[in-house]
Design a protein around this nucleic acid. Structure first.
Lengths: 205, 205
DNA sequence: GTGTGTGAAACTGTTCACAGCT
DNA sequence: AGCTGTGAACAGTTTCACACAC
């Protein structure tokens, strides 16, 4: 769909636009200008218009953007009009919190399995699922067509686990372990590390 | 210290360098080249050298960087050689998970209070702390010299809570609510939203 | 008048490549 | 030989400003 190569930084902003648009829609609004949307997400109006222009023309000059229409357009662009299957690996406190987080299923990200290496954790209940042993991970990934692996394991195990899921064909990893992962070029890794974020903020305080 | 204005993107990479350096130090290493450090973090060697050059000269030509020395230099630059005081606001599942996360105190980020608006949650135990009512938040922020507020409240309350902590003098917010915050220019806000990160990854799948 | 879409300009960030040090 | 530190070249991103549409 994108005629030109789309910068990654643009793709990362689209979910923020979507979020703000959903809030506006819930508030009963039907139209929004790039200026107003920009203020809601904290970027310039020109940025919004330029970002959207990578994918087509979604606004009406003189009026702005029809909110419901722009929401569906962004969902289609980001491939959010289908369900995505995820596994959580690591059933510690973080793994439990993630498994119980309703936000995932609300956005069509389905958790189809929770795995842990530790036999003491296997069989424990997390949300509506039971913790399974790592041995069952490959078959589960293939049978349930798992798209994304969420890593909530200790830093020292993260690389080995990443290697395993990549070997099973997973091409997207959300990594909560404070550890940079080495993966093939076609695997997408996103890092969530509150410590690193805090450490960048303290620089400015 | 920085002679020139330091780009924000550089500051955000420093914690990643620190992380990799700590892993190397734990592995017993004493020296590292920009090439090797770059491979560990996933950036180019030139990037590492250029980033560090904003703050001074930390390496030895022909040898590389003395790991322990570079760790202390980065800690000093990021102001990690002191304790930071934080409050968690929102004592739901996420608030509990954050309060129990050992990583914070391991990195000198101390949680000095957990607050919730809901009377049913006040008094509940979270880690070694008790949930306190929002009414006590201002005095706690001032008495304990709180530097950072972690928001784990619903999106609809996030802006109001942010306004409160800013009014109490907090200038750094780590926001887990899926909601852009509007704050004065001198307040630093960092967002952690796994849904937004997943939605950016699905674009590429 | 209001507001989009978009080339061009301005700005920011990254990579190159090499002088100089060990 | 090996590696840092850095100006210069390059690439990427944001902002500007305006033609055009409602």
């Amino acid at each position: 769909m994108p005629q030109t190569m789309v910068p990654d930084v643009v793709v990362r902003r689209l979910p923020l636009y979507l979020q703000a648009l959903n809030h506006l829609a819930e508030a009963g609004r039907t139209l929004v200008s790039s200026t107003e949307l920009g203020e809601a997400v904290g970027v310039s109006s020109a940025q919004i218009r330029k970002d959207l222009s990578f994918f087509g023309e979604f606004g009406r000059p003189g009026l702005g953007y029809e909110i419901r229409y722009l929401i569906s357009a962004l969902q289609r662009i980001l491939q959010l009009d289908k369900d995505w299957h995820m596994v959580i690996i690591g059933a510690g406190a973080l793994g439990h919190a993630l498994a119980n987080y309703r936000g995932f299923e609300d956005h069509r990200f389905a958790i189809v399995g929770v795995f842990d290496h530790d036999p003491d954790r296997v069989g424990a209940r997390v949300g509506r699922l039971l913790v399974e042993p790592m041995e069952l991970l490959p078959s589960r990934i293939r049978e349930n067509h798992v798209d994304i692996a969420i890593l909530s394991v200790p830093a020292r195990s993260a690389q080995a686990v990443a290697d395993q899921v990549v070997a099973c064909g997973v091409r997207a990893i959300l990594n909560y372990a404070p550890m940079a992962l080495s993966t093939p070029q076609d695997v997408h890794v996103t890092y969530i590390d509150p410590i690193a974020r805090l450490q960048a903020m303290t620089y400015y305080l």
